[in-house]
Amino acid sequence: MITAAVFGLAGHETLADAAAGVTVPVEFLLQWDDELVPRDSGLTLFGAFASREKTLHANPCTHAGVPAFELASSQRFFTRHLLDGV
């Protein structure tokens, strides 16, 4: 059973239908200057998630330029949703 998810570096329009079925907490990483995934596609995908708890993390970087602090943020996100209260 999936109880939380971190997504990013994706934005293809065909994923929006699948995102509409995602209701668990979501953290979404968006590279603002991504040369592979258009910004609008990423924003559309984020908007399509059905989760009542979703957070968008946007950084002014290229596709492969995800800042190291975002990895730490993802770890905190998973700790909060998967380990806290266990």
Rank of each mutant, 00 (worst) to 15 (best):
M1N: 14
T62Y: 06
P38L: 01
A72S: 08
D84M: 13
D33P: 09
V66E: 02
T55G: 00
L15C: 03
Q31Y: 00
V66G: 12
F77Q: 08
P38M: 08
F77D: 04
F7R: 06
V37A: 09
A48R: 04
S41C: 07
V24Q: 11
V37R: 07
L36M: 10
H12W: 11
G8Y: 03
D17G: 15
D34H: 04
C61N: 11
F7A: 06
L83C: 07
F7N: 01
A58D: 09
P25F: 00
F78K: 09
D17S: 14
S41L: 00
R39M: 04
E13A: 15
Q75I: 11
H63D: 05
G11V: 01
C61L: 12
F28L: 03
F77W: 04
R39H: 05
F78Y: 14
L29H: 15
R76S: 11
D34F: 04
E27R: 15
T55H: 09
D40Y: 09
W32P: 09
E27L: 15
T79A: 10
K54C: 09
P25L: 08
P25W: 00
L29Y: 15
E13Y: 10
T14H: 15
N59M: 15
A18W: 15
E70G: 11
S73L: 15
K54I: 07
R76Y: 09
R39I: 01
D17V: 08
M1V: 14
A10N: 12
F46Y: 04
V22F: 05
P60W: 03
L36I: 06
S73F: 08
L36D: 10
T44G: 03
V66Q: 05
V66W: 06
R76E: 06
D33C: 11
Q31W: 06
R76W: 06
A10I: 08
H81E: 05
T44Y: 03
F49N: 03
R80G: 02
A10G: 14
P25S: 02
R76G: 06
L45Q: 00
K54F: 11
A68L: 13
L43Q: 04
G65S: 04
V37G: 00
A48I: 01
R39N: 05
T23F: 06
G42E: 00
Q31A: 12
E35C: 06
P25C: 04
A10L: 15
V37P: 11
L29W: 15
T23V: 02
E35A: 07
V22P: 14
W32A: 04
G8V: 01
D33Y: 12
G11P: 05
L56A: 07
L43G: 03
Q31E: 12
A64Q: 09
V24Y: 02
F49H: 04
P25M: 05
V22I: 12
G11H: 01
S74G: 11
A10K: 14
A20H: 10
D40L: 02
L15V: 08
T79K: 11
F49A: 00
F69R: 11
F78T: 11
E70K: 07
P25H: 06
H81P: 10
A68E: 12
A4I: 05
H12N: 14
L71M: 10
E27C: 08
L9W: 01
L83F: 09
L36T: 07
V22A: 02
D33Q: 13
A72Q: 09
L56N: 03
M1A: 13
G85T: 01
A5H: 12
A19T: 05
P60S: 03
V24S: 08
F28C: 07
F46G: 03
G8I: 05
L9E: 09
V26R: 06
E13G: 10
L43H: 02
H63P: 12
